[in-house]
Amino acid sequence: MELGVTFFAFAIPAVLFAGISKGGFAAGAAFAASPFLALILEPAAAIGLMLPLLMVMDITALRVFWRRWDWPVARRLMIGGLPGVVAGAALYTAANADVLRFMIGVIALGFVAYQIARARGVLRFEGWRAFPGAGYFWGAMAGFTSFISHAGGPPAAVYLLTRGLDKTTYQATTVIVFFAINIFKAVFYAGLGIFTAETLWAGMFLIPVAFIGVFLGVWLHRTVSQRLFFGLTYVFLTATGGKLIFDALT
């Protein structure tokens, strides 16, 4: 991993964007940093670089939203998240770089399709009665997709949207849930060698960007339309996800 102009031209906006999402928009688009970085790095290096930074963002956001979460809802998702992380680790050990690129690309495009379907009313989760064990099931889905590309937001949202949470409680609940899931992931990332001296060293340069992103996100949470933020995310992820799939197949 060469820490040159190209690296920082991709890494700084990716980490800033992830921080804004973590701090102000329920972490739903934070994973966009991983597909973006995977355009210039091996997939393992991209997710390994981002996880410590995401954990820094988690800790920063926890202080802002401390005890404002719905604990019973968060607990179900966190318990379910552990077997999901284990499943993600098992897949990682059997997959090569192109398989991971393909999966990250598919998850990116799937996120866009999911958000557009929700916006147009094709998918509606508000008001649904969750089936018994739903929190554990969607927690497992969140843990799995989070392990592969830090993309646990949509599966968690399917369950969270059935709980009738207000905006701030929803945000705080995602913060505590992914704080726990990221701790689970860190153990497996270390064991599988996903963290390297290079990714950790590069991450040190990006920690200030992570802090700035979170606090900027907290401010934007109160002042900027979520629709505008995610609209930009859809365009960004469609291009990035499509490119990763093309690279993986060719």
Score class of each variant (00 low, 15 high):
residue 1 M to V: 13
residue 5 V to T: 14
residue 11 A to S: 10
residue 16 L to E: 12
residue 18 A to C: 03
residue 23 G to L: 10
residue 26 A to W: 08
residue 29 A to G: 15
residue 30 A to W: 03
residue 33 A to R: 05
residue 37 L to R: 07
residue 37 L to V: 03
residue 37 L to A: 01
residue 39 L to Y: 06
residue 41 L to K: 04
residue 42 E to V: 06
residue 42 E to C: 00
residue 47 I to H: 05
residue 49 L to Q: 01
residue 49 L to N: 01
residue 50 M to H: 06
residue 50 M to R: 01
residue 51 L to F: 08
residue 53 L to S: 02
residue 53 L to E: 02
residue 54 L to V: 11
residue 56 V to A: 12
residue 56 V to P: 03
residue 56 V to N: 01
residue 57 M to V: 05
residue 58 D to V: 03
residue 63 R to D: 01
residue 66 W to E: 02
residue 69 W to Y: 11
residue 72 P to V: 07
residue 73 V to T: 15
residue 75 R to S: 12
residue 84 G to C: 03
residue 88 G to F: 11
residue 91 L to T: 04
residue 91 L to F: 14
residue 92 Y to M: 12
residue 92 Y to S: 10
residue 93 T to A: 13
residue 93 T to W: 04
residue 94 A to R: 08
residue 96 N to L: 01
residue 101 R to G: 04
residue 102 F to C: 08
residue 102 F to Y: 12
residue 103 M to A: 15
residue 103 M to K: 01
residue 103 M to E: 04
residue 106 V to Q: 00
residue 107 I to C: 04
residue 116 I to C: 09
residue 118 R to K: 15
residue 119 A to S: 14
residue 120 R to F: 11
residue 122 V to T: 11
residue 122 V to C: 07
residue 123 L to R: 08
residue 126 E to P: 10
residue 126 E to M: 08
residue 127 G to F: 13
residue 129 R to T: 14
residue 129 R to V: 13
residue 132 P to R: 14
residue 135 G to A: 09
residue 135 G to W: 08
residue 137 F to P: 08
residue 139 G to F: 06
residue 139 G to S: 09
residue 140 A to W: 09
residue 141 M to I: 14
residue 148 I to N: 01
residue 149 S to T: 08
residue 150 H to M: 13
residue 151 A to H: 05
residue 153 G to P: 12
residue 154 P to K: 07
residue 156 A to K: 10
residue 157 A to V: 13
residue 162 T to E: 05
residue 165 L to Y: 07
residue 165 L to Q: 05
residue 170 Y to E: 09
residue 170 Y to C: 10
residue 170 Y to L: 15
residue 174 T to H: 11
residue 174 T to K: 05
residue 175 V to Y: 00
residue 176 I to N: 06
residue 178 F to S: 07
residue 179 F to I: 00
residue 182 N to E: 06
residue 182 N to S: 04
residue 182 N to A: 03
residue 183 I to A: 12
residue 184 F to M: 11
residue 186 A to K: 09
residue 187 V to H: 05
residue 189 Y to T: 04
residue 189 Y to D: 04
residue 191 G to P: 00
residue 194 I to K: 05
residue 195 F to R: 00
residue 196 T to F: 02
residue 201 W to L: 15
residue 202 A to W: 13
residue 204 M to R: 15
residue 204 M to I: 12
residue 209 V to D: 00
residue 211 F to Q: 05
residue 212 I to D: 02
residue 216 L to F: 11
residue 216 L to E: 00
residue 219 W to E: 02
residue 220 L to K: 06
residue 227 R to N: 12
residue 227 R to L: 09
residue 229 F to L: 11
residue 230 F to M: 11
residue 231 G to A: 12
residue 233 T to Y: 13
residue 240 T to C: 14
residue 242 G to D: 05
residue 243 K to C: 04
residue 247 D to R: 06
residue 247 D to N: 13
